[in-house]
Design a protein around this nucleic acid. Structure first.
Lengths: 204, 204, 204, 204
DNA sequence: TATGAATGAGTTTTCATTCAT
DNA sequence: TATGAATGAAAACTCATTCAT
């Protein structure tokens, strides 16, 4: 029913191709600098065809957000509710965020950089969901602080903001072709995060 | 600070007003979504007047970068070459970056978010200077690792990337009207940075 | 009234619903400002469905004209050929035009306002039929003038034009919810028409 | 300062030419069916130039209304406040409306036929002014009824509506090249109007 | 009989920039 | 030094119509 071969823009369904093209172009040139014509061309569709599936350019942007949010929220939820100590779960969550973000670099770039171009209502929804996501992650830090695994005198909020800032920033410097693999970078980032949370007087 | 010129006093501030207006608008709406007309209006100048001082919209964007880069580079240089242990200098540098970034939130926003709209040559220059800045900061980390003040098994490069990612991300959540002062946030961020660098086996 | 066909009962009314929806939308927004999609939506049909019954948007407009012309011509013919003095027949005709127009306000609006959007051949037909209608009505006035019931020194043509102009204009000010009933307005209009035709020296 | 020669579209000022072109095209093809491109072309200006003077297509339509309303209101006011019996003033007003409308046939056509395409606020203004105009004219009829010059049992409101309907309708049948001059038609229309208002029992 | 995908030409509007004054 | 008229290219979006199914 779906893709029988593995290349050519005519594979996969049209809306799929449109979202992919849009993601790539938005990441490369920014949302306002990308024309609907370019998206249509890149997806091998006419402009009219694009508007058959998405009622505006903004709706395409929204779709990029929906997909990333859905994916990330789902994964974090899975990890946060699994068994293991807070430190273990935070470690798993951090590694997962880093690797999945590295694999969706374009989406991440668009997410942070173009957010202010979302229509107001959509923006509110997206922000609310991102806040929930933030709180979920922060919750793991707080849990660890409560049970004594993490330094309690460092703001869990700040740690979370800092961590996601670092993730977002990956889009600026990380290149899949670079010297380190995604897994290594995930491990490094996680180590850095946990390192900053080590208790001042280690349990003897 | 600049221009001690000889023309009428109202004249002297026109370019200044233009850059300020442009910074604000670029931060609020993004570079491509801001029209030259809006900038001129916000600065109380006609479009023709704007083109008298800046030969293109891109040049205005460039100017925003020049100012921020100049300022930050200068301050970091001062601190890095001052006396004190690496840890002391890193602390001072980190605090300074946080507070000065918080005070120039709009410039920082524009810096990271709109960079890809710079004309190619300017972009190359800006990237080079940012790389130097990054290396200067990373150097402080490496120094501290060499003298044993910081954990040596954490990538100095990653720490630096992470830190600047966090700074940039401030523009997303920090509001001057929020509960914490700039100084407090600077202290917190710095503590977080240094905490992550604490040696695993504390100096006995 | 028409179509005693043999297909499914829901089918039979689709074209009917389409013409009604089109009439309403053309009257509200004008012919060019109404999209085929809107008409289809309003009739609860898909666009494809609409094109099954009408081969173009223009044909729908044409249909609005056909119906109104058929109706009005038929009624005037009936009245004009009935018995009674010219004044009596003119009175009956006028009352009938006013009331039937008031009951088909939307059709009347479309008739006069959107006529120039008819395709050329249709337009010619419609104009010819309207001219016949005009002449039929004017004939009644002229008859009355010949037999001395009406002032002979007033142009029958002008009276007719004026009367139909007034009728058309009803769409601008008349509202079914207004203070006067359709019958009252019909009586008033008729009185006004006949009043203007009264002989200068009343029959003694 | 103004037109030195009497033809060529480059004479007169640009906004003037644009309004004239718009009036003609709106009258010929209707407002929605007229493209901004056509107006610009007809006025010998680029589309950008058009938008330099009028901020939207709707504003051009509005301008057509402003001019006609201003003109007609001014003339009626002059006549209504002049000396003479109500009948004399009504006669003067009617003749003037007919002739000035005949000389602005296109404006009149646009006025009645395209009114519903005005933006809501403008529409409200225009309707209010038209209502004042209507009331002014109706006032003359009422005055004449009060002093016994006109039949009191005919609705002054209906007479006024009817008269303006007839005027509007002129655009449908009147051609400057026709057999009757504007003045003759004005006289005929006026005679018709006054004829309908003659008292039933003439003053003996 | 009816659908919905797709097209391509056309719509209004914006905008960075130039230039005569 | 500054203005405002003018341009021309490009933007987002709409729409009547066709057609395979």
């Amino acid at each position: 029913m779906s893709a029988r071969s593995e290349s050519a823009p005519t594979d996969r369904f049209v809306p799929e191709r449109l979202v992919e093209a849009a993601t790539r172009l938005f990441a490369d040139k920014g949302y306002p600098a990308t024309s609907v014509q370019e998206i249509a061309d890149a997806a091998g569709v006419t402009k009219g065809g694009l508007y058959h599936y998405f009622k505006s350019k903004a709706e395409l942007l929204h779709e990029v957000y929906r997909r990333l949010l859905f994916l990330q929220t789902y994964r974090l939820e899975q990890i946060a509710t699994s068994s293991g100590s807070p430190a273990e779960r935070l470690r798993a969550a951090a590694e997962d965020v880093v690797t999945s973000s590295a694999n969706s670099l374009r989406e991440v770039t668009v997410f942070f950089r173009e957010m202010h171009h979302l229509p107001p209502t959509t923006l509110a929804t997206v922000r609310a969901e991102r806040r929930r996501y933030h709180e979920r992650f922060r919750g793991l830090v707080e849990e660890g602080q409560r049970v004594g695994e993490f330094r309690p005198d460092i703001s869990a909020d700040l740690v979370t903001h800092s961590f996601f800032g670092a993730i977002h920033h990956m889009a600026v410097w990380y290149r899949p072709s670079g010297p380190k693999s995604v897994t290594e970078i995930g491990a490094d980032f996680t180590e850095l995060l946990l390192s900053s949370l080590r208790p001042v007087t280690p349990a003897t």
